[in-house]
Nucleic acid binder design. Structure first.
Length: 472
RNA sequence: CGGGGAUUGGCGCAAUUGGCUAGCGUGCAUGGUUUGGGACCAUGAGGUUGCAGGUUCGAAUCCUGUAUCCCCGACCA
């Protein structure tokens, strides 16, 4: 068995594609820009769904399902919205062998089809708020695609809520953003920055967009989830009103928020290394792999006992395939990112112990049978924390402050990352910075303090330091 | 959509200026020896060289068209 040629982590884009294929997370589909999510990759999505769905439901948001097809004239109701999505639409023109009188868009997002129904369902202030989420697929015909990060079809959840007041709606918008942060921090072991998008980067049709931005090892920023304050833009477009207590017509205040399978792409990059994936225990489909050293009958029996015992508490599997050496198995499971490996052979049996090996730091720990469960618990917990800490440290280390445009350009050309700089909030300035350096505004961090500054590009007065980066 | 590269057993590649039965590695199957960090030996299965035309005694190789994929840009979660 020869050593497989895993791509070097330093060439991140090659490594990324390679690892997804080799770890059997996904594969290319026959349709351009589409991918097959394989069971091991889909298990990651299920992990995200379970975690986030609970947060969503705890907040009182209910799941529902709306159709994949949207009549074209629905999309056209909101001007910015249709302009934003038109270039990316897949459109059905034939149904049942006959030309359709009205063409149907395959949903790129569901605002329009959902809000038309919301209008139908409400007439009184008592009917608000509407708190609905759906887990589904959407299609955006991308020019350039990339496994998990940008595919023509992707899976996501989209929450769509409507409230009587802007305060309430904004509260929900920010609640969703916090739920995303929690999902990234606690489940995926990823650090990121919450903030507000600039007007040019916001969602088509939104009043304001909020984002969770994560830094990837190559210094590019990943828009990891977004939550939009739609204001009353859509309720106006749909002429949707309810009557309030004083018989006034109120246009409901709306928000929408989504997290997609792109999160898996971020997860892969944020923690990986030359040997493959590193999955945080909370999301790992297999938290612990038991490898009985081949050739020992006695230890195999013990390994099976341990498996039966641990299976009650952990996602654990036992690799007792014949014909593969121990070394081969070690490498295979490291590639797949399993956080903890348990080795057991007769040598260990004689000492009443096993060997635990951590994927994150390759540390080997000898553990007696008596302490096994508590040690596994502690190690998994520690790995989860260490992976998050590592990503947080990386992000902070690669977050720079640039006070002059020269500094800004130097950072972009040498050691990319987040750049914190004053910006006058003029879109022309933003566009010029992008043209010069490829960096775009990622967000205005939520905790930003107002200061007296000068725009890093034009020198005009600026109130806030914005976060810039090269984005995915 | 612009620029670059590619397409040959499952995967990765080779085949000189057009010339022998299209090879090699890996993977796969079977048998045996192995087994504590990617084992070894033997045997075997697996190909209309992306597709469609053309030139030629002869095409993986030359020509025309076309499709797909990857990378770099503009658009985006």
């Amino acid at each position: 068995m020869a050593k497989s040629q895993l791509k070097n982590f330093s060439k991140l884009s090659d490594w990324f594609t390679d690892i997804i294929l080799k770890a059997e997370l996904a594969d290319y589909a026959p349709v351009k820009g589409c991918m097959v999510i394989r069971p091991y990759g889909y298990a990651l999505w299920e992990g995200i769904q379970n975690f986030l769905d609970k947060l969503i439901k705890d907040h009182g948001v209910k799941n529902a399902y709306f159709p994949i097809f949207i009549p074209m004239h629905y999309l056209q109701k909101e001007k910015e919205h249709v302009e934003g999505f038109s270039p990316q639409l897949a459109v059905v023109t034939i149904g049942g062998g006959e030309e359709l009188t009205e063409k149907l868009a395959v949903r790129p997002t569901s605002e329009t089809v959902m809000y038309d129904m919301y209008k139908k369902w409400t007439s009184s202030w008592r009917d608000l708020p509407i708190l609905i989420n759906q887990w589904c697929n959407v299609v955006r015909w991308e020019k350039r695609t990339y496994l998990f990060l940008r595919t023509s079809e992707f899976l996501w959840q989209e929450g769509h809520c409507a409230h009587l007041t802007h305060e309430e709606s904004l509260e929900t918008t920010l609640w969703a953003l916090n739920a995303y942060e929690k999902t990234y921090n606690q489940l995926l072991g990823m650090y990121g920055i919450k903030g507000k998008k600039s007007q040019s980067e916001k969602f088509p049709g939104a009043k304001d967009s909020y984002t969770f931005e994560c830094l990837m090892p190559n210094g590019k920023a990943l828009q990891a989830a977004t939550s939009h304050d739609l204001g009353q833009n859509f309720s106006h477009s749909f002429d949707w009103t309810v009557q309030d207590q004083n018989k006034n017509k109120i246009y409901p205040w709306q928000n929408s928020w989504g997290l997609s399978t792109r999160a898996i792409g971020g997860l892969i990059m944020a923690h990986g290394d030359d040997n493959g994936l590193k999955l945080p225990p909370a999301i790992a489909p297999i938290q612990l792999i038991i490898v009985p050293i081949p050739g020992y009958e006695k230890s195999l029996i013990k390994a099976k006992e341990i498996y039966q015992q641990l299976k009650k508490t952990y996602r654990v599997e036992i690799d007792n395939r014949e014909g593969e050496t121990a070394g081969f198995k070690f490498n295979k499971w490291e590639l797949k990112g399993v956080p903890l490996r348990l080795e057991i052979g007769d040598r260990d049996l004689d000492n009443n112990s096993v060997i635990l090996t951590r994927r994150d730091n390759n540390q080997k720990i000898t553990v007696t049978f008596d302490n096994l469960e508590s040690e596994i618990k502690n190690q998994l917990k520690d790995i989860q924390i260490k992976l998050f800490d590592a990503h947080k440290k990386f992000t902070q280390k690669h977050t720079y402050t640039a006070n002059t445009y020269d500094e800004f350009k130097k950072i972009m050309s040498e050691n990319r990352g987040f750049i914190s700089s004053f910006w006058c909030e003029n879109p022309d300035c933003e566009a010029q910075i992008k043209a010069d350096t490829k960096a775009t505004t990622r967000c205005l961090p939520l905790n930003s303090k107002e200061e007296k500054g000068r725009c890093v590009h034009c020198g005009q007065p600026a109130k806030y330091r914005w976060l810039f980066a090269l984005s995915y």
